[in-house]
Amino acid sequence: MIAAGAAVVLAAGTTGWAVWSNAQLQPDAATTPAQTTVEVVSGDMVAETLASGKLQYSFTLPVIAGTGGTVTEVPPVGATVAAGGILYRIDTRPVILMRGAAPAWRDFSADMTRGEDVRQLEANLKGFGFFAGEPDDRFTRDTSAAVRAWQKSLGVEQTGTVSRSTLLFTDRDLRVSALDTRVGAQVGEGTPLYSATGTEQTVLLNMKSTDRGLAVPGTPVTVALPTGTDVEGVVGTVDDPVEQPAADGTGTSVVIPVRIDLLSQEALGGLALSTVTVRFASTLQEDALTVPIDALLPLDDDTFAVELPGRAADGGRALVPVAVGAFASGNVAISGDGIEVGTDVVVPRR
Score class of each variant (00 low, 15 high):
52 S>Y: 07
63 V>R: 11
105 W>E: 10
52 S>H: 08
104 A>P: 03
152 K>N: 14
131 F>L: 05
56 Q>W: 08
101 A>K: 15
86 I>Q: 14
119 R>T: 07
107 D>T: 06
88 Y>K: 03
54 K>L: 11
120 Q>R: 07
80 T>P: 00
94 P>L: 15
147 V>I: 12
82 A>G: 00
94 P>F: 12
76 P>C: 04
64 I>F: 09
72 T>P: 10
135 P>R: 05
130 F>M: 02
132 A>I: 00
78 G>N: 00
50 L>Y: 04
79 A>N: 11
153 S>F: 05
83 A>H: 03
133 G>Y: 00
140 T>K: 01
156 V>H: 08
73 E>L: 15
91 D>S: 07
144 S>I: 00
161 T>V: 05
144 S>A: 15
84 G>K: 12
72 T>L: 14
162 V>R: 06
139 F>L: 06
83 A>K: 11
76 P>D: 12
66 G>D: 03
105 W>F: 14
51 A>M: 09
161 T>E: 12
48 E>I: 14
137 D>Y: 01
159 T>H: 06
157 E>I: 10
51 A>R: 01
126 K>M: 06
48 E>V: 15
69 G>K: 02
88 Y>V: 09
104 A>M: 05
129 G>M: 05
57 Y>M: 12
147 V>R: 03
72 T>K: 14
61 L>A: 13
87 L>H: 11
72 T>C: 14
105 W>K: 07
124 N>K: 03
54 K>G: 09
59 F>L: 12
99 R>A: 13
53 G>I: 05
116 E>F: 11
153 S>L: 02
74 V>I: 15
109 S>A: 13
91 D>A: 09
71 V>D: 08
122 E>P: 03
89 R>Y: 04
74 V>C: 13
75 P>N: 12
146 A>D: 04
59 F>V: 07
74 V>G: 11
161 T>D: 10
157 E>F: 08
103 P>L: 15
125 L>G: 02
106 R>H: 08
154 L>S: 09
67 T>W: 11
64 I>G: 03
151 Q>W: 03
148 R>V: 05
151 Q>D: 07
80 T>D: 13
105 W>P: 02
122 E>R: 03
119 R>N: 08
48 E>Q: 15
135 P>T: 02
75 P>A: 14
123 A>M: 10
54 K>H: 01
128 F>G: 03
142 D>R: 04
78 G>M: 00
69 G>H: 05
93 R>H: 04
96 I>C: 13
121 L>E: 06
163 S>V: 00
73 E>W: 13
150 W>G: 03
114 R>Q: 15
87 L>V: 11
92 T>R: 15
136 D>R: 04
140 T>A: 06
158 Q>I: 05
121 L>W: 04
126 K>Q: 14
64 I>Y: 07
124 N>P: 00
111 D>W: 07
72 T>V: 12
121 L>S: 01
93 R>S: 11
73 E>V: 11
151 Q>C: 07
86 I>C: 13
154 L>A: 10
119 R>K: 13
146 A>C: 02
